[in-house]
Structure formats: C-alpha cells, structure tokens
C-alpha cells in the first residue's frame, strides 16, 4: 500500500497512526502540500481529481477519504471496529472545518473566519468531553467502549492538535485522559505537535 502523505496533515496522520497500530507496512510518498501545492499538480489530480490528501493506493484500489482508508486498513481487523464508529467518523470529518481549519490558518496562513472556526472547535470539544465523561461513568475510556476503534483514531489528530490553531485543551479532563490512553497504545507514533510519552524511557 502506498500513502501519498503530507507530514503536517492531521488526516494523513490518521492513516499513518492506524497502520502503525496495526503493524501494517505503508510506503510513504511525501507530497509537498505546503509550500509546493503539489497535491494540485497534474500527476496528483490524475490520481485524485478532488486534489486532497491523503490518497491510499492498494493495487488498483485508490481511496481518497480518510474514513474509507481507515475502514480499508481494518477490513480484516474486527477488533478495531464498532457499530458506533460511523457517528464518530462523521464527527471527525467535521473537525476539518473547525479545529483543522483553525490550525491551517494559524500555522500556514489559510484564509478562514478564525473566530467562527475556533468557536465551532470549542463546541466540538464540549460534545466530545461530555461523551467521554459518560463513558468514564461506565468505566470505559474510548469513544465506543473499552478498546480503541477507528472512531478514536479518526478523532484523535484534529483534537490533539487543537492548540496549533489557538484552541486550548486545558479545560477538558476526559479528553485529556482519552488522548493519554491513545498515546499509550502499543505501536503509537507521534506527529509534530503531539509528543510521545517520555514517562518510562530511560529512568535515571
């Protein structure tokens, strides 16, 4: 499988993270999204007329939606699926227009109604916090149960990167514990803006 990848993209990171957690090898092809706008080049448009990333190719299959890619990667991994996933995959997609847009605005200068994007991001964080708090009342830490699914992996990047777009994560304790649980998963990989857990490395 080949992932056409941009290192700073939250959506590409969903795919890299899912593959790492599954132990599935990916061949990465770096795409110069910024400043090169290479995702709009004729070669990339031939692969994905929408001109977006990520793009995953697996043989003749070409997938350009990150939720579809997560489903594809976990096709043979039912332990990463739940019947509640779809709701959260839609929630994750909507984050691109709030927290994701605020981040692109603050980091690389995308045009945006920044106050509106951040306000929508705060509303999304409150929704997520309320749900995760309910889960914790039932002794569950992840979005759909006691184990992570593609729902968690889809939501994690834009949530964890919210501070890049000027949205604080400080007031959301259940979100913080959930992020910690994801960062603690075997095989977890970080991306810039999300530090790995240094707690256990090389105790002095």
């Amino acid at each position: 499988m080949i992932l056409y990848d941009y290192v700073l993209s939250a959506s590409c990171y969903k795919v890299r993270l899912m593959a790492a957690l599954l132990g599935t090898p990916l061949t990465l092809r770096a795409v110069n999204f910024h400043p090169g706008r290479e995702h709009k080049s004729p070669e990339m448009l031939a692969l994905n007329p929408k001109g977006t990333l990520p793009i995953l190719t697996d043989g003749d299959t070409v997938l350009t939606d990150s939720a579809d890619i997560l489903r594809h990667l976990t096709a043979d991994h039912p332990e990463w699926r739940s019947t509640d996933d779809d709701r959260w995959l839609a929630f994750a997609s909507a984050l691109n227009a709030s927290l994701g847009l605020a981040r692109l605005h603050d980091v690389i200068g995308y045009d945006a109604d920044i106050d509106k994007a951040r306000a929508a991001g705060v509303a999304a964080l409150r929704t997520l916090e309320a749900h995760l708090t309910e889960q914790r009342f039932d002794g569950l830490i992840f979005l759909t149960g006691s184990k992570p699914t593609i729902a968690d992996i889809a939501c994690f990047p834009n949530i964890a990167l919210a501070p890049d777009g000027g949205v604080s994560l400080d007031p959301y304790p259940s979100v913080r514990l959930w992020m910690r649980a994801i960062r603690s998963l075997p095989g977890f990989i970080e991306m810039p803006g999300i530090h790995r857990l240094h707690e256990l490395a090389h105790p002095v």
Partner: peptide, 27 residues
C-alpha cells in the same frame, strides 16, 4: 504542565530537567 512525571519527579518536556517533590532541580 507539558512535561512528564518520571519516578517521583516532574520533568520539563523541553530539555528534560527533572524537579523533585520539593520543586528543586535534581537532574
């Protein structure tokens, strides 16, 4: 607050300086 707890210390994420429970830098 971006740091990490290692043993009975709090460490800074930037350069890993570790502070003991009294708040004194010990490493």
């Amino acid at each position: 607050s971006h740091g990490f707890v290692r043993g009975e210390t709090l460490a800074c994420i930037y350069h890993g300086w570790q502070y003991n429970e009294a708040g004194s830098c010990h490493y």
